[in-house]
Design a protein around this nucleic acid. Sequence first.
DNA 1: ATATTTACCGACCGAACGGCCGGTAATCAA
DNA 2: TTGATTACCGGCCGTTCGGTCGGTAAATAT
Lengths: 205, 205
Amino acid sequence: MTRPAAPRRRGRPGHDQDAVLAAAVRLFNERGYDATSMFDIAESLGITKSSVYHHISGKEQLLQMAMDRALDGLFEAADEVRALDLPAPERLERLVRRSVLVLAERFEYVTVLLRVRGNTEAEQHALARRRDFDTIVTDLVKQAQAEGGVRPDIDPATVARLILGMVNSLTEWYRPRSGGAEAIAGALTTIAFEGLRTGEGLRTE
Amino acid sequence: MTRPAAPRRRGRPGHDQDAVLAAAVRLFNERGYDATSMFDIAESLGITKSSVYHHISGKEQLLQMAMDRALDGLFEAADEVRALDLPAPERLERLVRRSVLVLAERFEYVTVLLRVRGNTEAEQHALARRRDFDTIVTDLVKQAQAEGGVRPDIDPATVARLILGMVNSLTEWYRPRSGGAEAIAGALTTIAFEGLRTGEGLRTE
DNA sequence: ATATTTACCGACCGAACGGCCGGTAATCAA
DNA sequence: TTGATTACCGGCCGTTCGGTCGGTAAATAT
């Protein structure tokens, strides 16, 4: 679980693109993308603004890279779950679980992604990919309702958005340090699939 | 359901503070607070930037007013529910429902509130009030678990955050035009309290 | 030694931003 | 008609921002 053991690069030692991205993303999430200046990023690395531009082409590239890392993780999860030979309700539950885990693994990148509002072309493209992911989940809900095993009385798009909303809301309070992404994934899927209520008088038919 | 019938004000006709706030909040939610300039707000009202400053003291005041309107609505809901003479699980469900309705009624203000990251003192104060609201819900979950009726096997703070996360995620896709805040409140509370799963093999004890 | 590679820096630029000022215009009340 | 009230405007200012440029410093490879 440590670094891939840096292969000892050539040239003058110092920061690389990944270090800049990491610093940038940290600040983006602390204060917001717009409220983070290139000077802030440079300062947090102990170098000057012009040095930052040696590693990247501009502020927007940092945003782009962060969004891509988040989206790639989500679609990997979707692909893996799609390949499973299981009933739709099981696949749905697995995808929800995996989404939580992706969010935990790539926490800072996902957080950046979820705060983007579509102000530039790059952001709009990312929003489109997010919508594609939503559609995958919606279709899975639809299948699960058709196969039985998931309540059919709520519009599948609404179900997908509410569940993903619950997942995404983790960026507001989950902190990777606090460990136990699995525990939270468990709590979340339990609430989503079994509900909070206990006792009698449940199944109303 | 119409305006309170403007009492015909004195002086030159035109926009007032509320109009400026409305325009500002609309833009804040479209592009984000930082990405919205005072010029943008002025332009959307058909007046100049200096005219905007006739109505308000500065950009931050607009943010402050928006956050306050959202928070006041939430605490009103909490107060009303607290006064009810009902078992805790019922009160919890009502508060969740009411929160959805407040979010729908004061949609744009709540959206502004939920995007704030604490960059200024005013924002930090708003975040503190949000945390107070979270605590109210957490305590209610705790009570509901103690009284029975809500599953006791998940940490109450986690329950509160997940449920509120689902509620708050409505700002991402709910649009007041699309009507039916009650329908969404119903779908959300159904998922949260009854769960998605149907069929047999549920209650594992 | 010398070339190559990589990282860094100080100085600067044009644009955009939040905000201020002094003055003007339209309405209502006396 | 005059005064009060409310709304609006053009022009300006200091600051901050993203980004560029030409040159320097430290490593590795030959």
